[in-house]
Design a protein around this nucleic acid. Structure first.
Length: 778
DNA sequence: GTTTAGGATTAG
């Protein structure tokens, strides 16, 4: 589809491929170069699609230079669209739209004398017509359309100047808020109150059926921007209500934190002027002491019967009944009062057992009721949470003597009074800095007290993304050389397997009692074959942060003698987007080129790499090209992402060695860049059972064979992830009793691992494949 | 052109 619609006219400048150079309509001449050029203009005339013999059909339109009045003679130019492009244009574009064209050719206008327009006209042919003539680099898109061609700065109304029944844009500091809650209608509702330098307080009601469109407010003092909201008097006070086309962005309210817009929208506009408004509101809010010094109360200060806000990390959760969910959390501080422990069956608990935290009185058991269960269900162990208006309830077991100190339990009651609710907090939130530091030191303390049989490997399951890069988790090389399995061994009981001295192969027949991680996306890891480091695959939020950091420190386009560089400055984004291609590759087929992109966000990289094979995001350091921090993928290849090992890759960027490479894949890109490629691996831990006992066995090195799928494909494809889930659901049907589960024939290898001078016996499932009939959904 | 909500404790 060569027509690409954007929401805002700004996007015509920011979303266009970086290599396109803008040419003004006035500057167009017959001799102008039209390769890698784009033209922007407003559609002032749009004709019908008419059939023509040579090219099936055509459509004629006139576009006008956005900056020049129609009085200027050559500011308007005829554009002829041919074939499917004519039909697409007719369907997608209206008179008055602003468009950006690329991939056109320039000819002499035969109608110059009669229509008195530009002496040239532009011809646009679809890719089917003249693919060979076109040099489209990243996008195979020719036309960008903006349906809201009003190019004016947004006007923000001070809160004391609001008049009823208007559509307005406002900025404010949040003084009260509720997390979105379901209404009796079709939407969720967010209720908040905001204020600004005028000191007027205005209530806002936000309706949207999409939770992700609601403002991301985490604490009082956050700054919010609302676009296209409706003013309305209610009970004698001014209120704001969402209206058609409304949008919102929020910012942290702390004086020194970076001005990062929080939004689910991919196409919002934010510039220097906005940044200044946010900073002014922060300054004012701090002078008014609108931000309470600490947004939440640590567990160590909680007293019985208190209502308070808590910031914490989720350790584990369990469903109690349809209206109640248990969250086991900690914030690393020790409560003065003993905490109750709610025990549930281990297989009902999602997340790791909290035994070591329980022992130290660090685990808070929170019962979440009624309307809050919906949000609680979406939470994953490892996430950071904030709970609002949590109730510390002293609980005494029936019959317990009164001199026993009471235990504290925590209830998040139903309803939304006083802002009662909960939400997950992105791990880069500035309020989490202290919490993370405390948790880290507590985790170290607990780990040092841990016993051998606690299973060191399990530490990797729920490592939050930010732990990556600090403490890398390492597997020790396995010792089982010189053994082979020809599947001729006699089947043995699990008790027999446990009695044998490793290394040894065994054939067993067993059922799956449980497996970890229960969330299969967590079983994908990154593995360095060089140093055997294993780490989590970071989430998008974390990767986007790495890109943002690179943007902050990387203003000058880098200049490398080996690369051809083209750059576009975006005033709106306040940055330049730059593309580099190796001189040796510039004339090659664009699909096989290695493309270096600088000044792009993660989202932009994803859009570009969707249509391009090898995209390497880079930054500049004193005009020299550098890779981004290797916590982020170093290579984007269509939907696949590849990571490098921080320990084993060259620390400084080298000129890529491109000669002699026929086809670029992740292996030779990594090699050319001096990066040690990390492999995607699958890592699962099974608890196997037969009549004689249980054995914990890893599925790792032969996991791809087991699932008949490559880890890299699983990482890039939802379909493949579903396939793995299907197989697991067949091996251990959800909610099934042991009697209902299938028996599996497995080959196990027993081996020893040396760790801290201690020898541990481990088991791995090997040489085993699932049958093809397990792949399809039952 | 807009039903919902329009702050103001659950009661486990």
């Amino acid at each position: 589809m060569p027509v690409y619609a954007v929401k805002d006219v700004i996007d015509l400048d920011t979303k266009a491929p970086p290599h396109l150079q803008r040419i003004s309509i006035l500057d167009i001449k017959l001799t102008s170069d039209c390769v890698h050029r784009s033209v922007k203009g407003k559609v002032v005339q749009k004709g019908p699609v008419v059939s023509c013999k040579q090219r099936d059909c055509l459509l004629k339109a006139v576009i006008q230079d956005p900056k020049k009045s129609s009085a200027s003679q050559h500011a308007s130019i005829n554009v002829i669209f041919f074939g499917t492009l004519a039909k697409d244009f007719s369907r997608s574009v209206s008179q008055g739209d602003m468009v950006l064209l690329a991939g056109f050719t320039i000819s002499k206008s035969p109608t110059e004398q009669t229509d008195r327009l530009h002496p040239c006209h532009l011809e646009m042919s679809g890719p089917d017509a003249c693919l060979s003539k076109m040099l489209y680099y990243i996008y195979s898109i020719f036309l960008w359309v903006s349906r809201c061609p009003l190019l004016h700065r947004n006007i923000y109304v001070p809160l004391n100047e609001l008049k009823p029944r208007r559509i307005v844009n406002v900025y404010g500091v949040v003084t009260f808020f509720k997390q979105p809650f379901p209404t009796k209608g079709t939407d969720y509702c967010s209720t908040l109150k905001i204020t600004d330098q005028s000191n007027a307080k205005v209530g806002c009601t936000i309706f949207s059926e999409r939770l992700e469109d609601h403002p991301k407010i985490f604490r009082i003092g956050d700054v919010i921007r609302l676009h296209r909201v409706k003013t309305q008097m209610f009970n004698g006070s001014m209120t704001l209500l969402t209206s058609l086309g409304w949008s919102t962005v929020t910012f942290d309210g702390m004086l020194d934190s970076p001005v990062e817009p929080r939004t689910s929208s991919r196409t919002f506009h934010f510039d220097e002027a906005d940044k200044r408004v946010v900073e002014a509101l922060r300054q004012w809010a701090s002078s008014q002491s609108l931000l309470a010094s600490e947004p939440t109360v640590p567990l160590s200060s909680v007293q019985p019967k208190m209502y308070f806000d808590l910031t914490c990390q989720l350790l584990a959760k369990a469903c109690m009944d349809s209206r109640c969910m248990l969250l086991k959390v900690w914030d690393g501080t020790k409560c003065e009062h003993p905490l109750i422990n709610v025990t549930v069956a281990p297989d009902a608990l999602e997340g790791e057992p909290t035994n070591s935290q329980d022992r130290e009185n660090l685990t808070a058991n929170i019962l979440v009721y009624d309307n809050h269960v919906e949000v609680a269900r979406t939470l994953k162990p490892g996430m950071f949470l904030r709970l609002y208006n949590l109730h510390a309830v002293p609980q005494r077991a029936p019959g317990q003597p009164h001199d026993v100190p009471c235990h504290l339990g925590f209830h998040l009651h139903g309803g939304t009074s006083y802002g009662r609710g909960l939400c997950s907090i992105p791990s880069d939130n500035p309020d989490l800095l202290t919490l993370k530091r405390v948790l880290e030191s507590q985790a170290e303390k607990l780990a040092s007290e841990k016993e051998v049989n606690d299973g060191t490997l399990l530490e990797v399951w729920y490592t939050p993304p930010e732990a990556i890069g600090k403490g890398l988790l390492t597997f020790f090389p396995f010792v089982y050389s010189g053994l082979t399995c020809g599947h001729t061994l006699q089947q043995r009981s699990l008790a027999h397997v446990k009695r044998c001295t490793p290394p040894a192969f065994h054939h067993v027949c067993a059922q799956v009692k449980s497996y970890k991680p229960q969330n299969l996306y967590q079983c994908l890891k990154l593995f360095c074959p060089q140093c055997t480091t294993i780490k989590e695959v970071p989430d998008d939020e974390f990767i986007a942060q790495v890109f943002q950091e690179a943007l902050r420190g990387s203003c000058q386009p880098c200049s490398e003698h080996w690369a051809v560089t083209s750059s576009v400055d975006s005033i709106q984004l306040d940055r330049a987007i730059t593309m580099h291609v190796s001189c040796d590759m510039v004339l090659e087929n664009t699909q096989s080129q290695l493309l270096f992109l600088q000044g792009v966000t993660l989202d932009e990289t994803c859009v570009i790499s969707a249509a391009h094979k090898n995209v390497v995001p880079v930054r500049s350091e004193e005009r020299r090209m550098r890779l981004l921090d290797l916590s982020a993928p170093f290579l984007f290849c269509e939907r696949k992402r590849y990571y490098g090992c921080k320990q084993c890759s060259q620390s400084s960027f080298v000129e890529p060695e491109v000669s002699g490479v026929e086809v670029w894949d992740e292996h030779n890109v990594a090699k050319a860049l001096g990066v040690q490629l990390m492999q995607y691996v699958l890592l699962l831990k099974f608890e196997l059972e037969d009549e004689t006992g249980t054995v914990e066995a890893l599925l790792w090195e032969d996991a791809e064979r087991f699932f008949h799928a490559s880890s890299a494909d699983i990482a890039a494809s939802q379909e493949m992830q579903d396939k793995v889930q299907t197989i697991m659901d067949r091996l251990q049907p959800p909610g099934s009793s042991m009697a209902e589960r299938p028996w599996l024939e497995l080959c196990l290898i027993a081996y020893t691992v040396e760790e801290d001078g201690r020898t541990q016996v481990c088991y791995q499932i090997t040489n085993t494949e699932t049958r093809e009939d397990l792949w399809a959904r039952p």
